[in-house]
């Protein structure tokens, strides 16, 4: 007697194949559902906000009247913010990554720093706001300036930049290092002349993605007390300012229906800025892909 009857196997096969087909489409449907959410979201925002987009919207300051409200102060403020965040976070992030990948010995301190970075990445942004409020706004008396907000945002995205830079540095083939050391180059020369140039595309891509996260973050700005009704442009990093997501938040939380459309227009501007930054990241990634 046989343990496996081919006939039974064939009989059961049908049901198994049907289950396979059904589940395949369930999984596909779930994937499409996620994509659909994105499509609806983008479609809604464009239809709500497109009517309010105009040159005036970009060049006007905020206003009590929805039809005169503009995003100038917020747009310029976000740019100022980036001028602080980009150098601060990239210098700190790349420096940390170089230390961890090239200099750090395998010991407890290094492990602690690594673990700390991954934990820091999981801290909610609103908590970074509390840190910024205590340290930068109050203790260092920077007030709700561009500098205080910029430092807070830099710390928020620091883990992302460190991890991206570490990966980029790790991807530089070891043979290049060997070749440089073999010529009598010192460690720092090798890092500066060989490793960093080779890792720069990866570092830039990761940094731009991290910066685009900083440009859309709202909660830390609210906590450190960034205002919204601003009728002037900042002239230095110690000035107070407002930023795109702050302005959008203010409009979105107003009860009048008209301001909803203004908020949607603001979101379109924010998303356009993000799209622009992400395209640059993608271009860099594609341009420098597979060079070795």
């Amino acid at each position: 007697m046989r343990y496996i009857e081919q006939q039974t196997v064939v009989k059961r096969m049908n049901g198994r194949l049907i289950a396979n087909a059904i589940f395949k489409y369930i999984f596909l449907a779930a994937t499409l559902l996620a994509l659909l959410a994105l499509v609806i979201l983008l479609f809604r925002i464009v239809t709500q906000g497109a009517g309010n987009l105009s040159i005036d919207f970009l060049t006007n300051f905020a206003s009590r009247f929805p039809d005169q409200a503009g995003i100038k102060a917020a747009l310029v403020g976000s740019l100022w913010l980036m001028m602080v965040v980009a150098p601060t976070s990239i210098i700190l992030g790349v420096g940390s990554a170089i230390y961890l990948e090239e200099y750090a010995k395998q010991n407890r301190i290094t492990n602690f720093i690594r673990m700390n970075i991954s934990n820091l990445a999981g801290v909610p942004s609103v908590v970074f706001g509390l840190l910024g409020l205590t340290i930068f706004v109050r203790a260092m008396a920077l007030g709700n300036s561009i500098l205080a907000a910029g430092f807070t945002m830099s710390l928020l995205i620091l883990p992302v930049i460190i991890v991206a830079s570490q990966e980029a540095i790790r991807a530089v083939p070891g043979e290049l290092r060997d070749a440089s050391y073999g010529m009598g180059a010192t460690k720092w020369q090798t890092i500066l002349k060989i490793i960093l140039p080779a890792a720069i595309p990866g570092i830039l891509t990761g940094s731009i993605l991290a910066l685009s996260r900083a440009i859309g973050e709202t909660a830390p700005l609210i906590v450190i007390g960034v205002p919204v009704i601003i009728q002037f442009l900042p002239s230095g990093v110690m000035d107070t300012f407002t930023a795109l997501p702050m302005q959008i938040y203010d409009w979105a939380s107003r009860p009048q229906q008209e301001f909803q459309a203004v908020a949607a227009a603001g979101i379109i501007v924010l998303m356009a800025v993000l799209l622009f930054m992400n395209s640059i990241a993608v271009i860099i990634r594609n341009k420098f892909d597979k060079r070795y």
């Binding site: 979201l41 809604r44 440009i215 979105a252």
Partner: peptide, 21 residues
């Protein structure tokens, strides 16, 4: 990449979407 875009949408935009849609 589409999922990456979904992950990159600022939360303020999601909040607006929740409230108005």
């Amino acid at each position: 990449p589409v999922l990456e875009v979904l992950a990159g949408v600022p939360t303020i935009v999601y909040g607006f979407f929740a409230l108005t849609f």
